[in-house]
Computed example of a mutant assay.
Amino acid sequence: MIAELLASRIRDVPDYPKPGIVFKDITPLLADPKTFRAMTGEFTRHAREARATKVVGLEARGFILAAPVAVEAELGFIPVRKAGKLPGAVYAVSYALEYGEATLEIHRDSFQPGDRVLIVDDVLATGGTAAAAVEAVRRGGAEPVGVSVLLELGFLSGRARLAADAPGVPVTALLRV
Score class of each variant (00 low, 15 high):
Met1Lys: 14
Glu4Met: 12
Glu4Ala: 13
Glu4His: 14
Leu5Trp: 14
Ala7Trp: 03
Ala7Pro: 04
Arg9Trp: 15
Asp12Glu: 15
Val13Arg: 00
Pro14Trp: 05
Tyr16His: 15
Lys18Ser: 10
Lys18Pro: 15
Ile21Glu: 13
Val22Asp: 06
Val22His: 12
Val22Glu: 09
Lys24Tyr: 03
Asp25Phe: 12
Asp25Val: 08
Thr27Tyr: 12
Leu29Phe: 03
Leu29Ser: 09
Leu30His: 08
Ala31Pro: 06
Pro33Asp: 07
Pro33Leu: 06
Phe36Gly: 11
Phe36Asp: 10
Ala38Met: 09
Ala38Glu: 09
Thr40Gly: 08
Gly41Arg: 09
Arg45His: 12
His46Asn: 15
Ala47Glu: 04
Glu49Pro: 08
Ala50Thr: 03
Thr53Asp: 00
Lys54Phe: 06
Val56Pro: 01
Gly57Thr: 02
Leu58Ala: 04
Leu58Pro: 10
Ile64Val: 15
Ile64Ala: 00
Leu65Asn: 10
Ala66Arg: 03
Ala67Met: 14
Ala67Trp: 10
Pro68Leu: 05
Pro68Glu: 02
Val69Gln: 04
Ala70Lys: 04
Ala70Gly: 07
Glu72Asp: 15
Leu75Ala: 10
Phe77Gln: 04
Ile78Phe: 01
Ile78Asp: 04
Ile78Ala: 05
Pro79Arg: 05
Pro79Met: 04
Val80Ala: 09
Ala83Trp: 13
Ala83Cys: 09
Gly84Trp: 01
Gly84Asp: 03
Pro87Ala: 00
Gly88Val: 06
Gly88Pro: 02
Ala89Asp: 15
Val90Ser: 05
Val90Phe: 01
Val90Asn: 04
Ala92Gly: 13
Ala92Ser: 15
Tyr95Val: 01
Leu97Tyr: 05
Glu98Gly: 09
Glu98Thr: 10
Tyr99Cys: 03
Ala102Arg: 11
Leu104Trp: 02
Leu104His: 02
Leu104Asn: 09
Leu104Val: 13
Ile106Trp: 07
His107Leu: 03
His107Lys: 10
Arg108Glu: 13
Asp109Thr: 11
Asp109Met: 07
Phe111Ser: 01
Pro113Phe: 01
Gly114Pro: 06
Gly114Lys: 10
Arg116Lys: 11
Arg116Ile: 06
Arg116Phe: 03
Val117Ile: 10
Val117Arg: 05
Leu118Met: 05
Leu118Asp: 00
Leu118Arg: 00
Ile119Val: 09
Val120Gln: 06
Ala125Asn: 07
Thr126Lys: 11
Gly127Ser: 06
Ala130Arg: 08
Ala131Phe: 07
Ala133Pro: 11
Val134Ser: 10
Glu135Thr: 13
Ala136His: 02
Val137Gln: 00
Val137Pro: 03
Arg138Ser: 00
Arg138Gly: 00
Arg139Ile: 12
Ala142Leu: 05
Glu143Leu: 14
Pro144Val: 01
Val145Thr: 02
Val145Ser: 02
Gly146Asp: 03
Val147Cys: 09
Ser148Asp: 03
Ser148Trp: 07
Ser148Leu: 07
Leu151Ser: 09
Glu152Ile: 07
Leu153Thr: 08
Phe155Val: 15
Phe155Cys: 14
Leu156Ser: 07
Leu156Cys: 02
Leu156Phe: 04
Gly158Ser: 12
Gly158Lys: 06
Arg159Pro: 05
Arg159Lys: 12
Ala160Tyr: 10
Ala160Val: 14
Arg161Val: 12
Asp165His: 13
Ala166Phe: 10
Gly168Ile: 03
Val169Cys: 06
Val169Asn: 02
Thr172Leu: 14
Leu175His: 06
Leu175Ile: 10
Leu175Ala: 03
Val177Ser: 13
Val177Glu: 14
